[in-house]
Design a protein around this nucleic acid. Sequence first.
DNA 1: TATGAATGAGATTTCATTCAT
DNA 2: CATGAATGAAATCTCATTCAT
Lengths: 204, 204, 204, 204
Amino acid sequence: MELDKVKIHKMGRARNPARTREDLIAAATGIFREAGYFATDSNAIARKAGYAPASFYKHFTDKADVLLAVYARYREEEWAGLQTAAQAAGPGQMRQLGAALDFLITFHQAWTRFRTDLRSVALLDPKVAEAIKAARREQLTRLSVLTGSNLERDAAPLLIILVLAERLSEVVAEGAALDVARADILRAAALSLSAALDIRVWGR
Amino acid sequence: MELDKVKIHKMGRARNPARTREDLIAAATGIFREAGYFATDSNAIARKAGYAPASFYKHFTDKADVLLAVYARYREEEWAGLQTAAQAAGPGQMRQLGAALDFLITFHQAWTRFRTDLRSVALLDPKVAEAIKAARREQLTRLSVLTGSNLERDAAPLLIILVLAERLSEVVAEGAALDVARADILRAAALSLSAALDIRVWGR
Amino acid sequence: MELDKVKIHKMGRARNPARTREDLIAAATGIFREAGYFATDSNAIARKAGYAPASFYKHFTDKADVLLAVYARYREEEWAGLQTAAQAAGPGQMRQLGAALDFLITFHQAWTRFRTDLRSVALLDPKVAEAIKAARREQLTRLSVLTGSNLERDAAPLLIILVLAERLSEVVAEGAALDVARADILRAAALSLSAALDIRVWGR
Amino acid sequence: MELDKVKIHKMGRARNPARTREDLIAAATGIFREAGYFATDSNAIARKAGYAPASFYKHFTDKADVLLAVYARYREEEWAGLQTAAQAAGPGQMRQLGAALDFLITFHQAWTRFRTDLRSVALLDPKVAEAIKAARREQLTRLSVLTGSNLERDAAPLLIILVLAERLSEVVAEGAALDVARADILRAAALSLSAALDIRVWGR
DNA sequence: TATGAATGAGATTTCATTCAT
DNA sequence: CATGAATGAAATCTCATTCAT
């Protein structure tokens, strides 16, 4: 105990690279979601995480590099939440779809700024573009498994579903600004998506 | 004579404010669509238009301000194109929808970078956010007129339609990267959109 | 007069690019010769010249770029001084050679740090290496004209002469540190150089 | 056994300070000769030697300090090579001189970058300047013994010889860039040096 | 002894913007 | 109106060096 105290004394910095990396990613996550990617600098990320600017560059090559790390977290969280939501909804395709959309809207709303900036960065940095593409492939595969559909044949409607689901939070946000109720949007989206699902994924 | 010479020597450019503004917007349009908003600086816009950096600030308060001017052009072009496409397609809702989507995909593909950056800037600049919101209101109104639907009641599906249509070009681009055919995506999207139209816009 | 005062009022900065460039080169010259290339940064050069750091980059692409500009001045000054010294010495090859060496020693002594750093930078930056090579070609040509020798045939001894002359200031400096008189070194160098001249430049 | 494992796990490297120092000097030698002093950082030296950055500072106070260690090696190697070359050449002053120059050119060519940077560093760091001065004293003494001349009286020509010999590799390199043959330069240099030797070292 | 994570200090560079003409 | 030189302010990134283990 005494020794532990001594150890910690005057360190301030966690001499644990994995932990440091985590701290930086966590700080970047907060900053990217609140202030946005373009409104901050790598120094701010390091400082917020409790480290010196130079430490940032020991863990990431540049700002886009943390963005990718945050993106990986985002996808994990999204996927876990989706599964939980679908399971909690009980049986019934429409019910599951509704629950999934409900989760997605809430989830993406918290990440709107991040997602938007991610797309802009992808146009500037091929690394990011490639990461998004890879993520999309993974999502398509997962979704085809989840819906029991064929990835090859149903790629188009699956893509539509993914993209529409992804944008729903923005539609809700826009809807709120235009006095359209969240429940109405959710219902319209569910119908639209189920149309895509019915008609293509399970054939005519 | 002596004085005139001096004047001409110093002008170099068209001393025509409206024309200058046009030139700047045209240059900004090209730059925003090709290199992107975040990849360019205002000096580059002025230079590309054939003016000095300071001239830029005689016509626009800042970079976001030209972005708005370019956005206005974008919407005019989009709307004109949509009407032309719908008329050229002849009668039949599905046919018109298909023609409209086809146009939108082509149109937006050329503006993908611009649209993407626009959303990021909107999160940084309230002016831009407000402009997007106003544009959305206008689009909703136009679309409700076009489809003979009720703006109040059908706001949700109309919004869904707008957003999905807007993203289609990106879906096509992503689809191409993942070997999904453009025609397949177009068909899936048309079906999905018509579902939204059928069920909500014209009631149960 | 009154107007001039008003004009100058609050400018501080000379709105004259050529003048600014001169100021920067002059500041860089002083800094490179006193503190050395590696001991300073471009900001210091700009500040010493009375400009902001950013102004530096309007006139030079980087630090090596000013180095080249300073180098050009250096060569002009060297050449002018050499001609003046040779003419002032009156007729007689040995006398002229002695006068030239005398000038070179004094001249190079003031530029020792610059010359030394120049060679280091040349190894880092191809631009600088190329500039030195071009300068050497020019010097060889001038020297062959001056000595009435043939550039093609006598390139080797001419090169030896150039290099030895160039290093003399350092030899004098080193000699001083080791208690060897300047006059002794000058005499030994003159003899050595005249040997090169006699034997090769005017043939056997 | 358990403890040993832990120890070995943590050491990784030879726990032999002398050996570590050697490794670091060897790595620094390679780096200084290839990339140059100013193009590398001390971390890179430690890494190349297979040690951690901090280990570097256990053996050297700073970057200039390794430079000195490398310089000591350089001088040993140079001197040994010179003696070998002179002996191998057999009797005859001109022959020996030629052989010595030939060796020096080859030797210095491999060390050009190092030598050049050494001089720049000497202007920044008095430690290095002093080391060069001491080395020069030693060389003068050795050379006076070798040529049977008087150090006091013939210091000037001996210095000239040293400096010219030192620069020859660069002259050869420059000559190559300007299409001047190595053999021509070698001959011109030998004549120039022998003039210095004849006239001063062995008196009038 | 050797480590390697971490950093302070600062060098380089960029860019939106202004100012006197 | 248009200019273009100049800049303040800051973002990105580097590097020699230290510190607790």
